[in-house]
Design a protein around this nucleic acid. Structure first.
Length: 322
DNA sequence: GTACAGGCAGTAT
DNA sequence: ATACTGCCTGTA
């Protein structure tokens, strides 16, 4: 394990790795002895020296100062991986200021300084969110860990066993019963469809990266097992589509409560409805399309970041455990 | 026992 | 276009 780099405080303002990792979509990261370890495709990444720092504070200067103690390591060695993984190349101040018209997101930004979107390895991201359908985080972690253990490569880091995320080729050779043995249940069919699409070239990451949000989404939706929500997660977390806004049942409730006017076709900010906990109905395919469009209009080109903050804030206030 | 969990596809109206 | 249904699996 080698040092990749040490962050320079002035260049990377407002990064809190721990909050970002805990934001709910980094399924394969684990904490041991004040270090975080995570699989990114073939790489095992490690963050350390978190013990001496305290991130939870309202004082931004304190946060900046604490970053000097973070160490970013990896196997194999990658230089400055934190810049890529934590999206430090984004103009975060510009992104924040693009939400200044929205009270709830602005409030969440100041409440959770250092929370960032994290880039995921595209192929790993696709498998992860296909497995995430209709289940909970614990189960998702279990499925992905089983897949990694069975089909990934073992790597010993700090005397502990880690597994890389298996490549599409290897996963595609697994039989349906084998995948089910990993706890995937009926999702095995979807995982197979994704690996098959990758292997035969129907899904091409480079191509998807070069497309705009709408076109890339259309491509993903062709694959069995990838619907609206899963597609948006893949687009936001791994395909550079910051205008993707994944809508699951939880975020839908928050939206219904605080942004109910965005549910209607004509996006008029009329009188707000009485506060209701649940949306009046499930988000159907077409409702998702309309709401999604309105969200992009309202929050703008970086609305995926707005989702991240709304989501994190929701989980915190709901007191959910990860 | 049985309801439910961070969706999706297939079918019927 | 929308409504309804089944689906693996584990936990409360």
């Amino acid at each position: 394990l080698k040092h990749s780099s040490y962050p320079r405080t002035d260049k990377y303002p407002f990064l809190n790795p721990e909050i970002s990792i805990n934001s709910g979509q980094m399924f394969l990261w684990e904490k041991y002895n004040n270090s975080w370890y995570g699989a990114y495709g073939d790489y095992i990444l490690k963050l350390s020296n978190l013990a001496s720092t305290s991130y939870i504070t309202d004082n931004r200067l304190d946060i900046k100062k604490s970053e000097e103690n973070i160490e970013f390591l990896s196997f194999p060695e990658v230089k400055s991986w934190e810049r890529h993984i934590f999206r430090l190349d984004d103009d975060i101040e510009k992104i924040f200021s693009s939400f200044s018209h929205d009270a709830l997101v602005s409030e969440s930004i100041s409440k959770y300084p250092g929370l960032r979107l994290m880039r995921q390895e595209p192929y790993q991201c696709m498998i992860s969110f296909v497995c995430a359908s209709n289940t909970n985080i614990l189960m998702i972690r279990r499925m992905l860990k089983n897949l990694s253990r069975k089909y990934g490569s073992k790597v010993i880091v700090d005397g502990r066993e880690f597994f890389t995320f298996p490549c599409a080729d290897r996963l595609n050779k697994a039989t349906d019963p084998e995948l089910r043995m990993c706890g995937l249940g009926y999702r095995s069919k979807s995982v197979k469809a994704v690996t098959e699409a990758i292997v035969n070239g129907n899904i091409d990451v480079k191509h998807l990266l070069s497309m705009n949000y709408d076109d890339a989404k259309q491509e993903l939706l062709k694959v069995y097992g990838i619907g609206n929500k899963v597609a948006d997660c893949i687009l936001l977390f791994s395909l550079e589509k910051l205008n993707a806004f994944p809508i699951d049942v939880w975020i839908a409730r928050v939206l219904y409560r605080h942004y109910s006017w965005l549910f209607s076709k004509y996006e008029k900010k009329g009188r707000q409805r009485k506060r209701t906990e649940l949306p009046d109905a499930k988000i159907t395919f077409n409702k998702y399309r309309i709401l999604s469009k309105n969200l992009r209009n309202y929050f703008g080109e970086y609305c995926g970041y707005a989702q991240q903050y709304l989501f994190y804030n929701m989980r915190q206030t709901a007191g959910k455990k990860w």
